[in-house]
Design a protein around this nucleic acid. Sequence first.
DNA 1: TTCTCTTGCTTAACACTGTTAAGTGAGTGA
DNA 2: TCACTCACTTAACAGTGTTAAGCAAGAGAA
Lengths: 206, 206
Amino acid sequence: MGTKERRERERVETRDRILDAAREMFATRGIEATTMRAIAERIEYTPTAIYHHFKDKDALILELCHADFRALGRQFTRMERIDDPVERLRRIGLAYVDFAIAFPNHYRIMFMTSIPPHEHEDKNPEEDAYGFLVKTVEDGIAQGRFRPEFSDPEELAQIMWSGVHGIVSLHLAKCDSPWIDFRPLRPTSEKLVDVMVRGLLRDPQG
Amino acid sequence: MGTKERRERERVETRDRILDAAREMFATRGIEATTMRAIAERIEYTPTAIYHHFKDKDALILELCHADFRALGRQFTRMERIDDPVERLRRIGLAYVDFAIAFPNHYRIMFMTSIPPHEHEDKNPEEDAYGFLVKTVEDGIAQGRFRPEFSDPEELAQIMWSGVHGIVSLHLAKCDSPWIDFRPLRPTSEKLVDVMVRGLLRDPQG
DNA sequence: TTCTCTTGCTTAACACTGTTAAGTGAGTGA
DNA sequence: TCACTCACTTAACAGTGTTAAGCAAGAGAA
């Protein structure tokens, strides 16, 4: 006995090997440029083997995506201990930028392409991260820190998100454009976060 | 004689028909989903015919892109008559958002994908629009309207651009994500522009 | 042991993509 | 009349994601 367990263990083992190979190749050469055949070759299987573990390429991408969203959420929740919601908001913004700098190709898949809807087995993948952002904004609103016209936490969260997503995605999409002399991403992002927070606050000096 | 002229005229005519078909199909079904064969079929030619007018698909995309950048530049320069540089900046931001709303698929190609470098025959395609933004910001700096830490016009322009690009591209990439309840784009963009301008100004009430 | 059945995987193919080498044939210019 | 130009076509290539059919090793039952 126990052979069933071993079989199952072996199965998830090769499944994980596929996932690992795909993750690495997506991240380095990009998602479009990595073919199923190349992934298969790397783990020394036939392309068809992958289809016994994942419905199709999109399912593979989606699974990696979920893991990435969880990783981002984890980065955010590290800010939980920061009491001041405004400071927490600032730090979330910078953590977001740092995540994008660290995993640019993951970021591209997560936020710069429409992920195929498919049937999402589990709930909201970006819930953790996005929900944490909304909660932080809610705290700020509850403390009366923001201007009165910002009473909708989701709207405010989306405005803040837009700012950091904008600078990051512009760099990722256009960094090799010879026409624009992009200023360094991290310092400029800090300035952008300051600008937005100041524009949001009821009492701009704190 | 004049037959040479007629031949040339006919050539650019079919060339334009290719361009028109491609533009329309890129805009409706998306760039990836439109095949060379489909474009050819629409204008009742063989796929190969396209290659006598354009080096490859990227060249076709690039040419349409240039036209789009010029169109955006034209929208911007309509704001030229606005004397107050801060008000002009605000209006440029909203014109940018309106352009993206009007031509979402063009926007995707222009700003959300790395356009193949190729050999850009003419100069900077985004120069018109981007240059106009930078100039506006320069005017604002010259008038001492912005906080002292914003003395670099390009940096400031990129911060402003990031904001509007962020909200627009987030909507374009994620609008059909069931996890996020996006607030309406135009009104939220107005708020975002206000937030950013206020955060930028030395004297926030004007 | 022997027989059957499951199951991870492979072989071989399909339909599709962008792209190109080798024509073809109508119309120009001599 | 004849060669030539050149916009366009035919037929193919190499690559993609994907799938139907089959194989062979191991498990479970006789």
